[in-house]
Design a protein around this nucleic acid. Structure first.
Lengths: 149, 149
DNA sequence: TTAATTAAAGATATCTTTGTCCTTATTTAT
DNA sequence: ATAAATAAGGACAAAGATATCTTTAATTAA
């Protein structure tokens, strides 16, 4: 559904929201290990998320990444927008540019409600809410083949 | 959601199902124009769909592509399988390999039902059913910027 | 049998995504 | 001031997706 870059972006953002505070920032090495992503590639992605004001970064000793309380209230969709991949949610499933209510593709009517639910999911779920579920121990976010934490 | 190749594959399959019979086969040029796809690239894709027995092809004069009545009963998912893109339907939205009911990612519970509906759509809708909607004039499948047919 | 028509197959080109590495800028502590 | 720690940025590499072109194989009709 999403590119690897966007998957890493979502995982990293949720991880940072769960683990960091402005006083306790996270380094790129920790983040990449935690979400099982290539470190340098993830660094690029976090650069983008920082530039787009989804997360924040401070350089130098004791620097690192964190996310402000304000940014935690952003919907998950903000990550998609920052990564330039928001249109996936809206797109026609057959890739038709003109597919719409008045000119539907053969899948439109049935896909319509799925699409609406997808959009709703990314619009209503905030970064904070996603992170909170991890804190509760209900869910996980790492990706290692043999890990349970 | 899907690659361009798979989008073309779905559109081409539906178009062939709508327009062709074993007596009236379609050439690659007509198909590519109808679904607004690059002709040579589409030829490769139709080769794959033929090899995977989703559609059929006959070479030589009066040859072309068609789809058997039997194949028309295949679900849309058969096209995804032929294109090697079936896992999109099943995949964790955050790209986590181990995401499951017992070890859910932070989006799992809400995404679960969306995923199920997606799978149901591709499993229950047959190629024939999708093509029939076009014949009824209810839907369209071309992709031209300025076309209404 | 020859020419024409059509898809199949292979080689190649281009672009995008994914990924790495090295240098630079910033900040902190000594 | 200097050294260390950290992210930012740029150059590059590798792989995959997208696309084109040329040649080959199969089929048909003349």
């Amino acid at each position: 559904m999403f590119s690897k870059a966007t998957e890493y972006a979502l995982r990293a953002t949720i991880y940072i929201a769960q683990k960091s505070t402005e006083e306790n920032k996270l380094g790129i090495e920790e983040i990449a290990k935690a979400i099982d992503s290539p470190q340098s590639f993830t660094a690029k992605i976090l650069q983008t998320l920082t530039r787009e004001n989804v997360i924040s970064a401070i350089r130098g000793p004791n620097g690192g990444f964190f996310i402000s309380e304000k940014a935690k209230k952003l919907p998950a969709r903000a990550v998609l927008l920052a990564m330039g991949e928001d249109e996936v949610l809206e797109k026609c499933v057959l890739g038709l540019k003109k597919c719409s209510e008045i000119q539907p593709c053969p899948m439109h009517d049935q896909y319509k409600s799925i699409k609406q639910q997808l959009i709703k999911l990314f619009v209503t779920k905030t970064i904070h809410q996603l992170a909170a579920e991890i804190k509760d121990g209900v869910v996980f976010i790492n990706n290692k083949k043999n890990s349970n934490s």
